[in-house]
Amino acid sequence: MINVIWFLLVSIGIIYSVCTGRVDTINNEIVISAKSGINLVLELLPMLVLWMGLMKIAEKSRLLEKFSSLIYPILSKLFPSLKSKKAIGYIASNVAANMIGLGSAATPFGLKAMEEMQKENSDKTKASEAMITFLVLNTSGVTLIPTTVIALRLAKGSVNPSSIILSSLIATFISSFVGLLIDYIIRRSKR
């Protein structure tokens, strides 16, 4: 799957710019893109180092476990196949961080959650059901306060920058609900 997407993005991009006579732009982009990629990695680095350190403390002190048992009753319904409490804890932390708009802190939790889910996965190259449910939940963006957008609206002189909170919230909710519903239907139909 990733093979196909990757190939399509690159080949459509190159062929279309050759056809429209903008080979130069794409030529430049190929050179620059690796640098942009590494820059993104470097942007991730500080948050990953800091939060992995803090979360290790939370893990060792069993604070993470406490937090996950709090939220376990809800999440275990979404992830019926998942046995690891640690994974649930990381999923809960990821969702919580996303909700309050801490996207950069959410990433380390999400990656840890994937790592924990991989331990239970029977085929290590194939996505498990729990992983897919988690990613659907994650990518449909459960954000309570879209801080970046509000900041940008403020900068552009909006009279009420946070007026979009309600509309975003409803849209986010619908998006997550539809995603989880389709995911649920697929899981059911496979049985």
Partner: peptide, 30 residues
């Protein structure tokens, strides 16, 4: 503004999260 706030970068997140644990068969996730 509403559109920007309502979803996340699906393809990037999938590539990042699945890539981190070397999963290539992503099934119906996308």
């Amino acid at each position: 503004s509403t559109m920007q706030g309502c979803t996340d970068t699906t393809i990037y997140v999938l590539a990042l999260y699945f890539g981190s644990i070397n999963i290539t068969k992503t099934r119906y996730a996308l």
